[in-house]
Write a protein that binds this DNA or RNA. Structure first.
Length: 812
DNA sequence: AGCACGCCGACT
DNA sequence: GTCGGCGTGCTC
């Protein structure tokens, strides 16, 4: 029997199946999708079995046997294997990269080496430095671990000993999918025996006696007690427990526990809520599609607060009743406890949550629940689209316009496309939900490719908040040079007095965005990136948000020695400070990357705000979604046009989506909400249409801009990005690529560039790009593959990097 | 990707 | 004469 194996070596020449003989012992259990370890050339690697066959086309005498079968039950289903193939072709990725990204991190291979002395006689030949590691038959079990703490000369001597064949190297392939274990004890004696022992137990060992009588009184025979709990309850020390274990009255064991990230939290149960007419109308065709087992992609456009989640949940209900499973994707940042709680309340323990805040081990456990069929619903961010269900009944993508569904590393897949593919395979519906659908999706819905569902009204007829546009040019003209308009300040003060809450949004962290010398115009730049440094006040530093470079602020200008260094631009830190200057009694919670870096900080800050412990929540992007608190009646957007002028064709769309999203935070309950949008371009359609809550108007205008510019959804794009430390190399390679594309592609296809990227240098690497715009281009894949083939050698040898994105979401 | 094989320069 | 540079090719 032959196994077709994709090995874990991401390179062009190894991106194909290799045949291995399946040893008899694995014949019964091996199956496509299983991980194996194989010897590949001189080393040992992990691989995935993609198929089994009786014969091999390869000259069979040279075939090797596969070394080990890792999985009795393959972690990848047949369908996921098929899907991987599709993604690999679509994104031009290596097969192995796609397969690996479908598994939780804990199941991906870890490579290490074990070092053993070839024979006892060799010990005397070893240099003194490394002798101790092999004395008395010892071995070095982990090269990686050892290398971290070993001295330089020790490492050198060790490598020399390997070369001289005194020490043998065994490659190891590991994973860290370990189950969490805890130590437990149980009584070794029956109740009668225990009674007998207790009766003549030496009274001077009072603690031990107490512990035994605790067992006698409280613990049934054969029941295991966790040692740490036992210590607490019986009031004894670890020493006492160990003493009784040594005397063999108690037996110590390891017990596997399933990590439950929601341990100790109870969830009230909820039942389906009565639906409003619009919700009912949206749900009906979805239910039909579930019942008829027909694949349809639905685009559900529902304004914020229109009850999309309830529609999702009732559709899932139907799916579960049919004995099928559901995947719900949400953007990472809105995978908040609030959101998770709603699903837990409705579907109880039948939900697995795949969350970036979980540890590797916890994620693995959640994944395993899916694979073992212990749950019917998986809720998670992008990668949850690979949840290994085998009988999918629905896939839901909430906030479908979110850019986080596009993976920005290889494989550069878009979860929406993968979802639709899986929907086709399982003949099940896919719901794309959003208040502000992506232009691509809405255009497809209008063309009838997707089935459009619309919900224009908020549940319980809560009104949409009133949006006021504040022209900051006007403020400036009237002498207000601060970042707050008078209107916004009045608004904040009024809420403060009424004990209502305000949310302030500014998409820039740090204190000020750049520092400049007023005399000579010098601007502090990152030495490694072509970007200005941001001033962070708390540690008096200038930081680069791209490479993390940090330096102290100059007190005099390094160029002209003047002391006229000034701070420009406003970040969240400065807003916080200014706000407190104006209202000293106001309490403000600031949420940005800097305050939420620590695990659990995000949740903690939101909880505090939800409990009314602050008057103002000030934050970046991350507060735009998912927060739903009854006392928020004012939302202020400090700089609405901050992302409007970015050199990216989606910037207007993003601005509209973000502003709409932020506005949706106000007045979601009984109190009416108000939104104030400060802007320097109050006439721009993306801002006017936010005020009018008019998605359709925005859609039409933006579509015509896209048509004129030749951008999606009218054209497809492909972006080729070249980077290297050597500028001349970057330019020459990207020019060759552009001219090659011009030669190979059809006349109607347009090749732009090469041009320097919007940030021409990051981390000392120069960045150029070429863009391809096309409607139909059958030769594109071939041409792009040709580029990879041409430069793969150079990319492997030098620092040259070429990335190709066949569906770019950002030009930056 | 790693690693061996292989063919040309400056050194014990 | 050899050690070592990195170009080329292979891995079932």
């Amino acid at each position: 029997m032959i196994a077709k194996v994709i090995v874990d070596v991401a390179a062009n020449q190894t991106d194909r199946v290799f045949d291995y003989i399946v040893p008899d012992e694995f014949r019964e259990t091996i199956a496509p999708g299983a991980r194996v370890t194989v010897s590949f050339g001189p080393r040992k690697v992990q691989g995935f079995v993609t198929g089994l066959d009786e014969q091999s086309n390869y000259s069979s005498k040279k075939l090797k046997e596969l070394e080990n079968l890792i999985d009795l039950k393959p972690p990848l289903t047949k369908e996921l294997l098929f899907l991987a193939e599709w993604i690999k072709n679509d994104t031009l990725s290596f097969h192995i990269s796609v397969l690996k990204s479908m598994l939780p991190a804990a199941m991906r291979a870890k490579y290490d080496k074990k070092l053993t002395l070839v024979s006892k006689e060799m010990l005397s030949k070893l240099p003194e430095t490394i002798k101790p590691f092999f004395e008395d038959g010892k071995t070095l079990d982990s090269w990686e671990e050892w290398r971290k703490k070993a001295a330089e000369d020790e490492k050198k001597d060790m490598m020399k000993a390997v070369r001289q064949e005194l020490v043998e190297v065994t490659p190891l392939v590991k994973t860290n999918e370990t189950k969490k274990k805890q130590l437990v004890v149980r009584s070794a004696l029956s109740k009668e025996e225990l009674k007998a022992v207790l009766d003549d137990f030496p009274s001077k060992a009072a603690k031990q006696k107490a512990l035994l009588s605790y067992f006698y009184d409280n613990v049934q025979e054969d029941v295991r007690v966790v040692i740490s709990e036992l210590m607490e309850q019986a009031g004894v020390s670890r020493q006492t427990v160990q003493e009784l274990v040594n005397k063999e009255y108690l037996l110590k064991e390891e017990q596997v526990v399933s990590r439950d990230p929601f341990e100790g939290r109870t969830f009230a149960s909820s039942s389906p809520l009565p639906l409003m007419d619009e919700q009912e109308e949206a749900l009906t065709p979805v239910i039909d599609s579930i019942v008829e087992e027909r694949h349809t992609t639905f685009l559900l456009r529902g304004v914020t607060g229109s009850g999309k989640t309830e529609v999702y949940m009732q559709a899932i209900d139907q799916v579960i009743r049919k004995g099928k499973e559901a995947i719900v994707l949400v953007p990472e940042i809105s995978l908040t406890p609030q959101m998770v709680t709603r699903f837990k309340e409705r579907f109880g323990s039948r939900v697995a949550v795949l969350h970036s805040a979980l540890s590797k081990g916890e994620k693995y456990d959640e994944w395993l629940k899916i694979r073992e069929g212990k749950v019917d619903v998986a809720v998670g961010a992008r990668s949850a689209i690979f949840a290994p269900f085998e009988n999918l009944g629905i896939i839901i993508i909430d906030e479908e316009h979110e850019t986080s569904y596009k993976q920005e590393e290889t494989p550069r897949y878009h979860a929406r496309q993968v979802a639709i593919k899986r929907g086709e395979i399982y003949n099940c519906p896919v719901i794309l939900g959003s208040a502000t659908p992506s232009l691509e999706s809405y255009a497809r819905a209008k063309k009838g490719v997707y089935h459009l569902l619309t919900m224009e009204n908020r549940v319980n007829h809560v009104q949409m908040p009133e949006v006021t546009l504040v022209d900051m040019r006007e403020e400036l003209r009237e002498g207000n040079r601060s970042m707050f308009s008078r209107e916004l300040l009045e608004g904040i003060e009024a809420r403060f007095k009424k004990k209502e809450q305000t949310v302030l949004f500014l998409n820039r962290r740090g204190y000020s965005t750049f520092i400049m010398c007023r005399d000579c115009g010098y601007v502090a730049q990152c030495p490694h990136c072509d970007i200005s440094l941001t001033y962070h006040r708390y540690n008096q530093s200038l930081q680069c948000h791209y490479c993390g470079h940090s330096e102290t602020i100059p007190s005099i200008c390094p160029e002209c020695q003047s002391d006229s260094i000034r701070f420009f631009g406003t970040g969240t830190q400065k807003v916080e400070e200014e706000l407190l200057k104006l209202f000293p009694d106001l309490s403000v919670i600031r949420m940005d990357v800097d305050t939420t870096r620590k695990k659990g900080a995000h949740e903690r800050l939101l909880k505090q705000f939800g409990e009314g412990k602050a008057d103002v929540l000030l934050g970046t992007q991350m507060i735009a979604k998912g927060l739903d608190f009854p006392d928020i009646t004012l939302v202020g957007v400090l700089a609405a046009d901050s992302m409007l002028h970015l050199p990216d064709f989606r910037s207007a769309e993003r601005t509209f989506q973000l502003l709409t999203q932020v506005s949706g935070r106000a007045g979601r309950h009984t109190k009416k909400g108000e939104v104030m949008v400060q802007t320097y371009t109050p006439d721009h359609y993306s801002i006017i249409d936010v005020k009018a809550h008019d998605y359709l108007s925005f859609f039409e205008k933006e579509m015509s801009v896209r048509r004129q510019g030749g951008y999606p959804p009218y054209y497809f794009l492909a972006l080729i990005h070249v980077s290297d430390e050597r500028l001349d190399q970057v330019i020459s390679v990207s020019e060759k690529i552009a001219s090659f594309l011009n030669r190979s592609l059809s006349k109607q296809t347009m090749v732009y560039g090469p041009v320097a990227s919007a940030i021409p240098r990051i981390k000392d690497r120069y960045r150029y790009q070429c863009m391809v715009k096309y409607k139909v281009e059958p030769k594109l894949t071939e041409a792009l593959q040709e580029i990879i083939k041409t430069y793969q050698g150079e990319m492997a040898r030098t620092g040259l990097s070429i990335t190709i994105d066949t569906n770019p979401y950002t030009m930056l």
